[in-house]
Computed example of a mutant assay.
Amino acid sequence: MSLRIVVLGLSLSSSWGNGHATTFRALLRGLDRLGHDILFLERDVPWYASNRDMPEPDFCRLAFYDDVAGLRREHADAIALADAVIVGSYVPDGIEVLDMVLREARGTRAFYDIDTPVTLAGLARGDCAYLAKRQIPLLDLYLSFSGGGTLERLANTYHARHPLAFYCAVDEFRYRPTASDTARWDLGYLGTYSVDRQPALERLLLEPARQLPLMRFVVAGPQYPAGIVWPDNVERIEHLPPSDHPGFYGAQRYTLNVTRADMIAAGHSPSVRLFEAASCGTPIISDRWNGLDELLPDGEALLIADSTENVVRVLQELSETRRMRIADTAREIVLASHTGTARAETLAAALCRYSPRSERPG
């Protein structure tokens, strides 16, 4: 059954400074491969408008709107007639947008929270700008970036009727191993600067770089403060478009995964970077958080590091045979369970299952 799906998200057209675009791209490509019709609606804001790396996607229709009034005026009919409408986290004026969707949409009404721990922290403080507590029980489906105990919290504290663990995914057709005779960097990291991630980046990459001056390191991503002192053997890349991600991963012996503090506290919140790197066949060194070992077993599909010494030991002592065995295992797991196509299948089934138009028992 082909579904007409409308998605309102932070950005699809620009990956600059956000992880939403790559997450949406993998999922929507998967939906397109399954034959579903998708309209993505994006607020036209200057920041993303001046940094668009996908202004015309080939897997969905993309339309921009200026404000909530423009959204209502130009796209109310599409929202009303869709089989499902999905509103994402961090959508500008998100509470007002979701109110409109809850009022107008006749199909399944879902919230896709790509930032669940951040969202719940904001709701607890009373300052979440894109979702209100009163809206959660009205949703047919709550797609949560985090699994585990977060789903119980959504159901018991916020009265979400159907919370579903819905991790991000990788586009398996674009994130593949690249041919490379020798690695350019011994360890690299890809991520936008954040205050809470910086101590782990310091501990797990910058300090190892200082202790291993003959090895090469790289940090790619925007918004890092000018005051950071980078070791001489750490290369900086300000922005790396998704089209360059596979080559970037392929040029590393290992890649580092560093997790936001809210995600660590919640657990069961894998970054899309984990799945991207694994799909590209690059071994991962990661910080520790609850649930990681269930997705990618420590010592088998990745290496968890708690200290600078852990990273230095891996870079100096791990054999090439074991390094590649870890990468191969991670890739097998990701391709089996964490691709855009796999997520699209799960999503389509859930949208049908929880549709108010269905006549299921109960």
Rank of each mutant, 00 (worst) to 15 (best):
H162P: 07
I136M: 04
G148A: 13
A179W: 04
A165Q: 11
D140M: 12
G148L: 12
R153L: 15
P213S: 03
Q135E: 13
I136Q: 10
L205R: 06
V195N: 00
T192W: 09
D127P: 02
R176C: 15
V195P: 00
Y175D: 01
D181F: 05
D127S: 13
R134Q: 12
T150C: 13
Y193K: 11
P177G: 05
C128I: 03
A183I: 08
F173E: 02
R210N: 01
R134I: 10
K133E: 14
Y130I: 00
L139W: 09
D181I: 09
L143Y: 01
L143S: 07
L214I: 08
S146V: 12
E152D: 15
Q198E: 00
Q135M: 06
Y189L: 04
F173C: 08
A209G: 06
T150A: 11
T178N: 05
R197F: 03
Q198A: 12
D171R: 00
L131E: 00
L204S: 03
S144L: 04
K133I: 01
R216H: 14
D186L: 02
G147V: 08
E202A: 08
S180R: 13
G149E: 15
A179K: 08
F145C: 05
L212Q: 10
D140C: 10
A132D: 10
G191V: 04
N156C: 14
A209F: 04
D127N: 15
D186W: 06
P163N: 13
T182L: 07
R216N: 11
L201W: 12
Y158W: 10
G188Y: 05
L206K: 03
L151D: 09
R197Q: 02
T182I: 13
L201K: 01
L206A: 01
L204K: 09
R210F: 07
C128P: 02
Y193A: 11
F173A: 08
L205G: 06
Y142F: 15
T192H: 06
P208G: 08
P199T: 00
Y158K: 01
P208I: 10
A200F: 01
L141F: 12
A160E: 04
Y130F: 14
Y158I: 09
E152P: 11
Q135Y: 03
